[in-house]
Write a protein that binds this DNA or RNA. Structure first.
Lengths: 200, 200
DNA sequence: GTCTATACGCCGATAGAC
DNA sequence: GTCTATCGGCGTATAGAC
């Protein structure tokens, strides 16, 4: 169990390289250099580069689901769980500044290439979307929950994009603070079911 | 004057293709197919593919500057000028859904490739940033102006990114409405110098 | 399972005729 | 200015030895 198979090594290394360099720009030679196998050996484990991409996307899907599960167990309130999401921007600020958001960059690259796996990759976004929507629903946001989830997802993407473009980590901190403030307003606008306070 | 040179044709076609397919994914054969010249002919006009990229970036810089100049002349108030910026998301919704934001996708691709032209490309973002900042300053936002410009730029990027990922034009309309509402709040928070109203 | 050797195509770029 | 022909390299993918 502790020993990772060559196949796992390939997928994990490809995962990193696809993030850092992009899918198309990453060659078998690049992955081979990290995993330290020969180029020919890939085809024992995968039929094509696209199959490696599928494996990487599936890895990210399971990893994301695991992380969301962890966040579910870490906080008492849905608002605090949403803060777990917001704060990954700060946690990963260095890598985001260099390579952007791992989800957004992959989905947008595949969309642009009109790659067959693009809909599969966007399922990673859907995981975050559904999870966030669930939290907003638990906060009492009702029918607005999905819209709020999309809004927060979009803001995170925008922050990552500009942090990369301007090589600016301080901007991440600023926007994360504003997102947390925005969340506070959402909490006040949607109090617990018992006490219906007037809206702003 | 009315006749465009072959060089101009190359740059304009490359501009479109870089937007639709990405810089790296676009080959000389692709551009040649649109301009209808032979591959060898490129090298009379440009020394390398990177020189075509430079020309494309310069074209976008001048086009962007022109557009911002037009917006300056189109509206009376800085807030209405900012709305011109917000509304391009709606105007270009179909293309954004397909290929994302032309500025963001190029800058992020070049950043990921660690391409020499990446800082040059991000100057297009800087044009928008400086122009927006100027408008917020005229609205009386003072030292917050640049932060507000970055905030709006980031939200636009996020909207474009998710619209592409989820193939969702309706989301663009929703978020554009929210950005316009947000701008209204900014106006109320920063009234004309004569009348200082209390903050929210 | 992993290797070496190699096929085959596309890429950016060059040379030189017209 | 535009063309054809071609080079050298790297890309994915295959064949077959070990």
């Amino acid at each position: 169990m502790g020993n990772k198979s060559t196949r796992d090594h390939i997928v994990e290394s490809a995962d990193q390289l696809f993030y850092q360099q992009g899918f198309e720009h990453t060659s078998f030679a690049d992955i081979a250099g990290v995993v330290k196998i020969s180029r020919g050996n890939f085809y024992y484990h995968f039929k094509s580069k696209d199959e490696i991409l599928d494996a990487v996307i599936n890895l990210r899907l399971t990893d994301t689901a695991k992380m969301l599960g962890l966040w579910d167990g870490m906080s008492e309130t849905p608002a605090d769980r949403i803060r777990s999401f917001i704060n990954i921007l700060v946690t990963n600020r260095a890598k985001i500044k260099q390579h952007g958001c791992p989800v957004g960059t992959l989905v947008n690259e595949l969309a642009r290439l009109d790659h067959a796996a693009k809909s599969n990759a966007s399922k990673i976004f859907s995981l975050f979307r559904g999870w966030l929507s669930k939290q907003f629903l638990q906060m009492g946001c009702g029918g607005e929950s999905d819209g709020l989830a999309m809004h927060l997802l979009a803001r995170s993407q925008g922050v990552a994009s500009l942090a990369t473009a301007f090589q600016d980590e301080a901007f991440i901190y600023l926007e994360v603070k504003q997102m947390n403030d925005w969340l506070d307003k959402c909490i006040k606008a949607h109090p617990l079911p018992e006490i219906q306070a007037p809206q702003v």
